[in-house]
Simulated assay, not measured.
Amino acid sequence: MIDINDLSKSYGNKKALQHLTLQIKPGEIFGFLGHNGAGKSTTIKNLVSIIQPTSGSIKVDGLELSEHRQEIKQKIAYVPDTPDIFLQLTATEYWNLLAAAYDLSEDEVKSRRQKLVNLFNMGLHVDETMASFSHGMRQKTVLIGALLSDPDVWILDEPMQGLDPQAAYDLKQLMQAHAKKGKTVIFSTHNLDTAQQLCDELAILKTGELIYNGSVKDLLAQHENESLEEIYLQMAGRQGDGHLVDDIEGDTHE
Rank of each mutant, 00 (worst) to 15 (best):
A146P: 06
D170K: 04
P26C: 07
D247C: 03
H253R: 12
I204Q: 01
K206P: 06
L17Y: 12
Q173M: 14
L220C: 05
G31C: 14
Y102K: 11
D152Y: 11
A195S: 03
G214M: 12
L233F: 15
E249H: 11
I50R: 00
L47Y: 00
T54D: 06
N36I: 05
I248V: 12
L104Y: 07
L220S: 07
L20W: 05
E106S: 10
A16K: 02
G182A: 05
G27L: 12
S105W: 10
K217W: 09
D6Y: 05
D241K: 15
Y212F: 13
V79K: 00
L22C: 10
G182C: 05
Q173C: 09
E209R: 05
D170N: 11
L97Q: 01
Y212I: 04
V117R: 04
K73S: 04
Q52W: 07
I186F: 01
L65N: 05
A203F: 02
A16T: 06
K59F: 03
T21E: 03
L89F: 14
K172P: 08
T21G: 10
Q52M: 04
I51R: 00
G123P: 08
L198D: 11
L192R: 03
L220I: 14
G214V: 06
D84R: 13
G39Y: 10
N121T: 15
A221S: 15
V109R: 10
Q161I: 08
Y11G: 01
V126Q: 09
Y102H: 06
L198N: 09
D3G: 01
E108N: 04
G242P: 02
S49V: 00
I29H: 11
T184G: 02
I248R: 06
V216K: 07
I155M: 02
L148W: 14
D218Y: 12
G56M: 07
Q70L: 14
I186C: 01
S149P: 11
L174V: 09
P165T: 06
S55K: 13
V153Q: 02
R113W: 12
L228A: 07
L89R: 01
L87Y: 02
E254W: 12
T207W: 04
S57K: 11
L89P: 06
Q139T: 03
E201H: 14
M175Q: 06
L98S: 04
F187D: 01
T252W: 15
N118P: 04
N121D: 14
M130I: 14
L63G: 02
I72M: 00
A221K: 15
K217F: 11
N225Y: 14
T43S: 06
R113M: 15
P151W: 07
D107A: 15
A146N: 07
L47F: 00
L228N: 06
E226Q: 15
D247A: 03
D170H: 03
L205E: 01
A131R: 13
A168I: 07
Q196H: 09
Q88A: 13
C199T: 13
A167V: 08
T43V: 07
E209Y: 02
V79S: 00
D193Q: 13
